[in-house]
């Protein structure tokens, strides 16, 4: 029983980080109907830039600010040169385009990393907190709380009903139709790509506090997409719930099944969950089913 609680609690804390990654994917989908794999790279580069500035001896607040500026610029540049020309083209083209961006940035990330794994120096003393028999790392708790705070900030930001937000929802319905009603689709794209890149960078910074910067880091973006699909692509609240559920499921299955099946269950668990969800409820927990016409 104590094992079960231990697995659940650490899974829950990891799940909070997944939820933040998923939020960046949900933001893009909610306002432009595009699905992005590329946010895994914003996450990875956010982590990398933060590590570089900390290593250079900048204080935490300055490193954070500089990282956000750089990743925001990255988001803008990527959006300006690759996504904006696709306004009005088939949405699937944009999906493949994000794969291409992912590959392009992936090579650059590996080049920066140089085949090594980097560890962020501990920003806070890494104690182990004990509650009853359950042990959790203090950095993980702090990362979880920080990402939860960031998540709530986004949720409240997007809960407001402004004219601009209404425009975003119109863009999500149909790019060209929105353009013809006088909504600046380009501005929506600029805004949402910068904001979602920043969200992904925040997630990256929260994640590198608990794990090393190494090559598979960008692939957490894929996990974020899975969480977003689980929760429903339009639902920010769904992303939080799905992230927490996935974190717990992953940790519990890894904890119990790894000794029996011989390891590697953690990587596969998310995909099994994804397949089950797609079979049972393809639009996720809180997603909107789309009705198609010929």
């Amino acid at each position: 029983m104590i094992d079960f609680i231990q697995f659940s609690v650490s899974g829950l804390l990891i799940g909070g980080l997944y939820a933040l990654v998923a939020a960046s994917v949900v933001l893009v989908f909610k306002s432009t109907q595009m699905v992005s794999i590329a946010h895994g790279q914003f996450l990875a580069f956010g982590a990398l830039f933060f590590w570089i500035f900390i290593e250079l001896g900048c204080p935490i607040w300055l490193s954070l600010a500089l990282t956000f500026v750089l990743v925001g610029m990255m988001g803008f540049i990527v959006q300006h040169f690759t996504i904006r020309p696709l306004i009005g083209r088939h949405l699937f083209t944009a999906f493949i385009m994000t794969f291409a961006i992912f590959m392009f940035l992936d090579g650059i990330f590996q080049l920066f990393l140089g085949g090594q794994s980097r560890t962020l120096p501990a920003l806070i003393a890494n104690d182990v907190l004990r509650l009853g028999g359950v042990a959790v790392s203090k950095t993980l708790v702090v990362s979880f709380l920080a990402s939860l705070a960031a998540f709530l900030a986004i949720a409240t930001l997007f809960a407001k009903r402004t004219i601009f937000g209404l425009g975003m929802r119109a863009v999500a319905e149909d790019h060209r139709l929105a353009q013809s009603t006088g909504i600046s689709v380009k501005n929506v794209f600029v805004f949402i790509w910068i904001v979602s890149a920043l969200v992904a960078a925040m997630a990256g910074i929260a994640i590198v506090n608990v794990m090393d910067i190494q090559y598979p880091l960008p692939y957490i973006g894929v996990k974020g997409l899975i969480v977003a699909m689980f929760g429903g692509m339009e639902s920010i609240g769904g992303a939080l719930l799905a992230g927490l559920i996935l974190g717990v499921l992953e940790n519990i299955s890894a904890g119990y099944l790894d000794p029996i099946l011989g390891g590697g269950v953690r990587e596969v668990a998310a995909y099994v969950v994804l397949l089950v969800i797609l079979m049972v409820k393809p639009y996720g927990l809180f997603g909107l089913p789309r009705i198609e016409r010929v």
Partner: peptide, 13 residues
């Protein structure tokens, strides 16, 4: 390996 992936991504874009 990394540059190959980047070059492919660029060509695809």
């Amino acid at each position: 390996a990394s540059l190959g992936v980047s070059a492919f991504g660029l060509v695809l874009i």
